[in-house]
Nucleic acid binder design. Structure first.
Lengths: 315, 315
DNA sequence: TAGAAATCTGTTATCGGTAACATGGAAAGA
DNA sequence: TCTTTCCATGTTACCGATAACAGATTTCTA
């Protein structure tokens, strides 16, 4: 591997000049710059990031903190992780996965945090390294998220356009901001159409929504579409309808939210609000590295969700 | 952050002595060692891995090469990645995900490779850094894998014990070693019971196995158990039987292989040969780091699979 | 045109460790 | 007792980069 020194020798300049060409090119004459560029190309020079890290006294480690108490085998978080890892690796940063328990251990250059609750606000604000949140929040912390409200709003409209006459919302029993936003999107669409909102909330497990539908099957009107806050819940609803003898999508519609793997393995596939989790993870990484480099707040980044058509809304 | 120097000063010794206490403790008297340990504890000394990496001229980067042409959203590979990442992060190594395309780019300290085909053998053997394969191979390259043969062998026996009279194998249409081993396990069990093996192979997609079962429904005998080489295939089989009016598990049995998420979302859940992909990924990492450190081949590591009971074999 | 200011380039010290060599005192051999 | 060997420790140089300072030109100003 060629070093700064090798390049310097070949270009007949000092190490420092080479370093300047890389970091402060305006402080070097064009003539020397050309020589140095030439030498770098000939030697295929790649800067040694470890040496750089040493002088900057950085760790090149980013901590990804998943504060929710969740199974790491869940594809949703894996996708997030892959997205983050992709970007970090590109910049030769290392990703460290941490939870509540092992949070404080070891140094790092920045944090990506998801699943924050109110009680966490205090210590999150005290962190002395740059932070990006994954998931909207109302505390002014920089975040990356999907436009949750727009997601359910548009999905609800789509269901109406497809001719379903009743819209029931099946939500997640959680106090997090994203859930409020999804509910708000549904409610707005329903109210704009002079309908009365009907919301139910459960823990995010398919068997809970399934059980609910089965036990209330008699009260459910034909031509209802269920706007669900997750693909898990949608999967349960779909299964329940099917087992109760209902027809999806002809007599009942079902829509999900997330679009991470689960929607594809259901049968028929779930029409869902697709979040590009991997891309969002990458964006978290980009924003964080930016924040580390420039020391300036990148603000919020909101991804517009796309509707991924499956077979749970009629055509 | 306390440095070697800080510790040295507090213990009234030279930097070198502190370094020796850490790396060659036998070359330092007990008396000094005590002083140094004391000082390290008082200052909560953590060695700076970046500085270490610089002198060793290492990158602290490990490349995970997924040579199969596969969707990265697949939970299987994500689990592998998480497992690897877990271990590497513990040792402050960085994980880089590479494919065929970007393989050669950039330096690293070692490789974890999965999905190797015959044609890859040549360049894999030429790599100048330590390598661990994920997935069995017959070329003498160190690997970590599940005992594939034992998996199908035991699963087939279980199906027989549950009273299914016919065993049909639904395999993956691939020339990789793991598939041969799974087939071998099934065949051995079947032959030990004086039965005649029946194997079918498809690309690893649920709709392919589903289509096969549906189109051959008339020829399928009651009380058959399908031993599938993946949960995907099993899912397709399960769905087909259900749609053709068959009863799982009463009249037909279905078993899968992998146990990574998919088996849990099917309904009923698939009885499957569970591979601990995350642990295996961790093991790949451990073995590779070991190999890097000691420069000695760790040999192969074979995980015994466990049968994860779902509802697709009768009780 | 002398002297000051600005511009460019090189030298030195530094980040936090480790290897290789140097030193000084104790144990061993003559 | 005097050398030789050994062992524990310290000194120096180095890994590959960068910041701060120093020196050499050039340009500008009076």
């Amino acid at each position: 591997m060629a070093t700064l020194m090798d390049v310097a020798k070949r270009a007949n300049v000092s190490k420092m000049t080479v370093s300047r060409v890389i970091n402060h090119p305006d402080k070097v004459t064009d003539e020397l710059k050309q020589l140095v560029y030439q030498a770098m190309k000939e030697l295929d020079y790649q800067p040694n990031l470890i040496a750089k890290a040493l002088v900057n006294n950085s760790t090149r480690i980013i901590k990804l903190c998943i504060l929710e108490d969740i199974d790491t085998t869940e594809p949703y978080f894996m996708n997030l992780m892959v997205g983050v890892a992709k970007t970090l690796d590109l910049h030769q940063y290392s990703l460290q996965l941490v939870t509540r328990r092992n949070f404080g251990i070891g140094n790092c250059d920045g944090y990506i945090i998801t699943g924050m609750r109110k009680g966490d606000l205090e210590w999150v604000q005290k962190l002395d390294k740059p932070v990006i949140m994954f998931g909207e929040n109302r505390y002014g912390l920089d975040f990356v998220d999907t436009n949750n409200k727009a997601g359910t709003y548009r999905m609800a409209r789509l269901a109406l356009e497809k001719g379903y006459e009743h819209l029931v919302y099946i939500g997640i029993d959680s106090k997090e901001s994203f859930e409020y936003s999804r509910e708000a999107g549904y409610i707005q669409q329903v109210q704009e159409n002079q309908m009365i909102p009907e919301l139910h909330r459960f823990g995010n497990h398919s068997h809970l929504s399934e059980e609910f539908i089965r036990s209330h099957w008699d009260e459910i009107q034909q031509n209802t579409a269920f706007i669900c806050a997750s693909d898990r819940l949608a999967m349960g609803v779909e299964r329940a309808i099917s087992r109760c003898g209902g027809k999806v999508p002809d007599d009942y519609g079902v829509t999900g939210f997330d679009g991470v793997f689960l929607n594809q393995v259901a049968s028929p596939k779930i029409t869902t609000v697709k979040q590009s989790i991997i891309e969002m993870g990458s964006a978290c990484g980009e924003n964080l590295l930016d924040k580390i480099k420039t020391n300036a707040s990148p603000g919020n980044l909101i991804f517009e969700p796309k509707i991924s058509l499956g077979g749970t809304l009629r055509d």
